[in-house]
């Protein structure tokens, strides 16, 4: 599984990244977590409000810092 955290580097994006790490750990799944900061790639997903969470190429959340529980639901 490939998880991408989209964001240009604001505080919320960092929190989301940490939450994703925790969620993956707790769920026991193996996943590759990537931080995407290039605006080209972010726009490529059509995301207009950051931070956003992309799982296997599908946007799951945008414009919100999802909680660990919420992330586990979409893994």
């Amino acid at each position: 599984m490939k998880i991408e955290v989209l964001g240009t580097g604001c505080a919320k994006c960092k929190t989301l990244y940490e939450n994703v790490k925790k969620a993956v750990e707790e769920s026991g799944k193996t996943a590759e977590i990537i931080k995407v900061e290039e605006i080209q790639k972010i726009m490529g997903y059509g995301v207009m409000s950051t931070p956003a969470l992309v799982v296997d190429g599908v946007v799951k959340f945008s414009g919100k810092c999802a909680s660990v529980a919420e992330i586990k639901e979409v893994l």
Binding site: T8, C10, K12, I39, I42, M43, G46, V47, M48, S49, T50, G63
Partner: peptide, 11 residues
């Protein structure tokens, strides 16, 4: 939020 101003503008 001003931190999303760039993607919003481009979008």
């Amino acid at each position: 939020c001003s931190c999303s101003a760039v993607p919003l503008f481009i979008g």
